[in-house]
Amino acid sequence: MVNEKQLRDEVKKLVSRDDVKYVIGYEQGTYGFQVTPSFAFTPEEAERFIFSPLCANNLSVYLMLEEKPPLRKGEKEDTRKVGLVVKGCDARAVVQILQEKGLKRESLVIIGVPCTGVIDPKKITVKFPHQIKPVDVREEGNHYVLTINGKNQKIPKDELLFEKCKQCEYPTPVIHDVLLGDEVKSTKKEEYKEIKTLEKKALKEKWEFWSKAFDRCIRCYACRNVCPLCYCKECIVDQLSPQWIYRSVNRSENTVWNLIRAYHLAGRCSGCGECERACPMNIPLTMLNKKIEKDIKELFQYVAGVNLEEKPLLAMFKPNDTEDTIL
């Protein structure tokens, strides 16, 4: 993994520059295995930065969350750059935002971290439900080494890794200004095993599976807000006239919300899995996103967020796109 000293030095260098506003990275969380986003405006604040296998958050969401209050008279727009620490999947989200012209490339400084996978906080909390003090987690080959109360514990990586990381095809950020450490080459291939199994089931079974999941949805929209690509000025669920989706929480509206959320990410989702991580109701949201990802790969040979020059999937076409079911 990454040399934290190198990371901090790099961040310090960046925030000392006149044309950089702040750098977004990770710092130690408040308890247990938590890691929390951190904003460094000064070199001192950069001291807090860490990078460990617990850094699951996709920080690129903050690029689009930045609030720009209306300028006062005589005030000039702050055009300084924002620095950002990204992993492989986060970088794809950045590429996607740039591709859609949500941001300008020159407004960013990207610190790339070649990623060897991150730990699913849900999985590790199940193993250590009572851990309050922060824990040091290191990666050693195929294992994670946890230091708890001075004792080392070795756990196979596979037991703790996010599912998405097990099939990650782009572990090294596809876009970066600085790359910390050596590139990580992936030999993995996304097989969509889970998706294919569900696809093969009968309609009734599929509906049972999903309606049970959607029934749990409380529409807190954590999935939307945590997503770096959900940055519409007004989300369709907040729109009042016409009000496409009622605010009532019931099976019909919840299903539509979840379908539309997934659909709006068609050809845009970078597969970072933040929606599923943020969902307090454990709805398997990546299974929806991955399904669309798989389809567009098969139907249109398109992968989101890897090529800055490409046009967005649904803003272009090929004359010979599929016509199988068209009458």
């Binding site: 696809e199 309609l203 509906w207 599976f209 999903w210 379908l259 399904k291 669309i292 139907l299």
Partner: peptide, 8 residues
């Protein structure tokens, strides 16, 4: 495809 996938 998506509708099929959720059972519609």
């Amino acid at each position: 495809e998506l509708l099929d996938y959720v059972g519609i």
